[in-house]
């Protein structure tokens, strides 16, 4: 091979660079945040601009319980990472399972909320600007929760099969960062849709 010889190495042996997975996830989060910002801006811009009912005040209830579930799942996933790092696989599985469960409850209650809105309050994505922006924003977030749940669920299955060990900590940590992001977005969505937008 006609490769020109490399230059001698005067820098010593220390050569550390950031983790590939974390950098990738940070980029993904930056891009996703921008998408959410646009949807949030559209939501705020159109609050109170609907030409017909129903209005948010008439039909929206504060989803306190599901919010608590989602936010606590951030804590449980954090513990899961911690346990995985320490190779305590049993506890890791327990924390991971509770994360999936809490996330599942959140999605289920969103589904219930939508069912009520569609069949009792007659609010669909076509009804008015509120319907359009509401379902889009909340739906966009929910789709991210579902994506996260699928990945966490896979991790859980692999863990139950005994295929997960402390070597996978970094990967799982990347996943947990995504989950924290999804939670953080919910805080924004919650504030905009249920607090300010009502």
């Amino acid at each position: 091979m006609s490769t020109v010889a490399a230059v001698a190495n005067p820098t010593g042996d220390e050569w550390k660079q950031p983790s590939r997975g974390m950098v990738g996830m940070a980029c993904l989060i930056a891009a996703e945040s921008a998408i959410f910002v646009i949807f949030v801006v559209a939501y705020i811009y159109y609050t109170g601009k609907s030409l017909s009912g129903p209005t948010p005040r008439e039909v929206l209830n504060l989803p306190i319980f599901s919010t608590i579930c989602l936010l606590s799942s951030s804590i449980t996933v954090h513990f899961a990472v911690h346990e995985l790092q320490g190779s305590r696989i049993g506890r890791f599985i327990a924390w991971l399972a509770s994360t999936v469960l809490l996330g599942g409850i959140f999605i289920a209650s969103t589904a219930l909320e939508w069912y009520e809105l569609i069949y009792h309050d007659g609010l669909t994505i076509r009804t008015n600007l509120f319907g359009t922006t509401f379902y889009s924003l909340v739906g966009l977030h929910a789709s991210h929760v579902i994506a996260g749940l699928i990945m966490l669920g896979l991790a859980l299955i692999f863990a139950l099969q005994g295929k997960v060990n402390a070597h996978h900590t970094e990967r799982f940590e990347v996943l947990s960062v995504y989950w924290h992001f999804v939670d953080a977005v919910w805080v924004v969505v919650f504030t905009v849709v249920y607090v300010l937008g009502r």
């Binding site: 980029c27 930056a30 891009a31 945040s33 921008a34 998408i35 559209a42 966009l140």
Partner: peptide, 14 residues
């Protein structure tokens, strides 16, 4: 691209 292409993606979704 992260902060600029994503808004386009969002707008196209809309």
């Amino acid at each position: 691209a992260f902060v600029a292409v994503s808004p386009l993606t969002a707008a196209q979704i809309m």
